[in-house]
Every structure is written in structure tokens, then in C-alpha cells.
Design a protein around this nucleic acid. Sequence first.
DNA 1: TGTGTAAGTAAGTGAATACTTGCATTTGAG
DNA 2: CTCAAATGCAAGTATTCACTTACTTACACA
Lengths: 208, 208
Amino acid sequence: MHSRDDILAAAAKVFAQHGFRGSTTRRIADAAGVNEITIFRQFGSKEALLREAMQHMTQSVGLVALPDVPADPDRELTLWSESFIQHLRLRSAIIRKTMGEIEERPEMGECASDVPVRASGELCRYLAALRKQGRTGHKFEPKTAAAMLMGAMFSDAMGREMMPDVFPQPQAKAAQMYSRLLLHAIGVENGSSRTTSKQTKRSKQLSA
Amino acid sequence: MHSRDDILAAAAKVFAQHGFRGSTTRRIADAAGVNEITIFRQFGSKEALLREAMQHMTQSVGLVALPDVPADPDRELTLWSESFIQHLRLRSAIIRKTMGEIEERPEMGECASDVPVRASGELCRYLAALRKQGRTGHKFEPKTAAAMLMGAMFSDAMGREMMPDVFPQPQAKAAQMYSRLLLHAIGVENGSSRTTSKQTKRSKQLSA
DNA sequence: TGTGTAAGTAAGTGAATACTTGCATTTGAG
DNA sequence: CTCAAATGCAAGTATTCACTTACTTACACA
């Protein structure tokens, strides 16, 4: 019937719309189709409920992996970036709320920072591997380059709706454009290591 | 004594710490050293006060200008980026709050988006001018490149405190590192064009 | 001195909100 | 079917908050 997970999902949804203070127990109960009291009996308090909802949500996140040994950087990085920016876009509301309340509720922020930290580590490793292969024309720091690409995608996901004119068009190509710009920045040539025929295979369209 | 501007400044400070919902009229009044009722007599309502505080704050923002004709891109872009990232860092708390409440209070977001929109326009123009000078080695879209640099700085300013390991060290060099990476991305060589004397011409400080 | 304006004090109103209590109802397992 | 656990319902408590009313004080200026 109305399981624990239904309430957690409803809490996450309400939180994404209204933030912590705006997530009244009444609203969450309504969204879950449950009596307000059930929330208190199951979770004890609003704070405990939202904390658990946050953890529940971040634990279910899986990221696309970057290959351990780069073969076709343009294709691989673009795919990875597309999946990452899509992840951010789907969660932009909840990320904004969490960031806005980080001073007052830091534990939620720590929980949410787990995904980008892991993604950054993965991207750094990939870029370092590219450099080790001798495929990069410039000296560069992987961490700086990774921060730049991820930062661009983060800002795009957070700000495009508010300031559409500032970001590249179309939205669906943005991750690719950022990725290619980054590859240029670190001096990686466009072609793949060997096979140019394979790279034309369409990257799957990730909807907005 | 306790002028209108004192109340506006206090309101902005409290808003930066607690957001809209957390900015109680009592807290603002205490921060301004003023009786709560004075706020209502002067501004009518909490909402009107905070709206006016927001406008008052964004109107006083001046940005460092980029030269109309690029001379020493590395130096000019670094200086501009440093001033921009500093601007973001000084306001990171208030920006986070505004973004977190944008769905519920869009008018404040519009007011706050004015600065980055202008900055983006300025940066686009500068990058386009570089390209027109024939100094860029790659094809690139100014808007994409501008979004990338600004996005990197935005994320750095918003996220470094929460995830220090993700961003390049030291913090004080970050703007320069991002700027140089971007110049590489668009294929601009490091050296200045010729004249190292002329380049100091137009770094006019508009105001803080 | 008289008057008007801005600020303060004190008290209170009505609405939300987190959370509780007591009791009735449903539901599922043995 | 039986019983116990889970859930629902009605009502209530204590607090917070935006905002109001009624009155007083301080000061500027004519």
C-alpha cells in the first residue's frame, strides 16, 4: 500500500519543489497520499524523514563510467558528459535547494556532494591517462581541466532555464561542445586512435 | 541615524544568511538596530523590503571591463576572471539562496541574473574580437567558450567550500588557470601581440 | 510654544506549523 | 476467525511569524 519508500519519494519531490522549510509535513503527507501522523510514527520527525529521503535518493545514483584506457576521447568524453549533464538537469531543482540551505543544514550537502566528487575523480583519472598516452599537446593539470568541464556543465544545468541566452544552443549539443572545447584546451587531436569509422555512430539522444 | 539604507543592508545580510523564509522581520529589525514596526512603516511588507534590498544590492555592482581590442589576452583575461570570480565569491551565500528560491520567487532571480548576463556578453565580445584578429587557432563559438569559462568560475565560487578537493589549488590562482585553459581551447598563443606598453590602457575599474 | 513627522513601546490577531494524544478502523498473519 | 500491528481521524498544544492597533516619545522648525 503506502510503503515507506512512497513517503520517501514524496518527501524528495516536495523538498525539490519547496526546500526544507517549505516542505511541511502536511504537504509531504498529501503528496504521499498518507496521513500526516503516519510520517511521525514512521520517521519520528520531519528532519529525520528528510535526511533519510536524501540518503535514499543519492544512494540510487549510478554514473556512466569512463574507460580506464582512452581510445576515442571525443566520443568517450562526449558520452560521459551527456550522461553527467543529464543527471544534473534531472536534479537541478533539488541541487539548488540543497545548496541554498547548506549553511543551515550542512549534512544534506555532504550527502549530495558525493556524486560530483566521484565524478570528478573519474574524470581526472581519464584526463591523466590521456596525458600519459602522450596524446595531449599542452601541459595541463587534470584537476583544473576536470573542474572546468564539470563546472561548465554544472552551471549550464543550474542556470540555462533562468538565462537561456547565456548558454550555447541547442541544449542537446551543449555537453558535446564543452567536451570538445576541453579536448582542444589540453591539446588532444580530434581523431580517435585508429578507427574513424566507428566514431560516427550516433550517440544516443538524451532528452532534456 | 537608522536610515533606510541601514535597513536595506541589514535585510540583504540576513537574507544571505537565512534566505527568504528564514529572514524574519524580527531578525532583520535586530540586525538593523531598529524596531520591527519601523520596517513595516517604511516598506509596507517583508516582501517589498527584500525586493528593494535585492535591487539596491545589484544596482551597486560594477564589473571590470575587458578591452575593446585585445592586446595581451592572457593578462587581460586573467585580470577580468579574477575580478569576476572574486565578485562571485563575495556573494556566494546570497547567490545560493536566490537560486534555491527561484521557483518560488522568480523576480529576485531575474534581478540577480543581470550581472552574469552582462558579463557573459562582454566576454563573448572579447572572444569574438580575438577571433576576428586572427589570433585563434581553432574554430570555436564565443558563446560556448564564454559559458565554459564563466561556468568554471561559477562552480568554483559556489562549490569550493563544500568540496575543496575537487577544485584546483591554490584558490588564488584558479581564475588564472581557468583563463589559460580557455585560451588554449580556442588556440590563442601565450604571448601578447606586440606592444606591452599599450596594454595597460583600458582596465578601468568601474566601481565595486 | 505649538505642530507635525518619524521612531519607539506594548499588546495582540490570525494563520501556519511541528508534533502529541486518544480512540476507532483496517489489515494481514497464524 | 483472532489478535496485534499499522493506519486513519479528530482534536489539541505550543510556538513562530507577518502584520495591526493604540498610544507615547524625540526632535525639527516656525
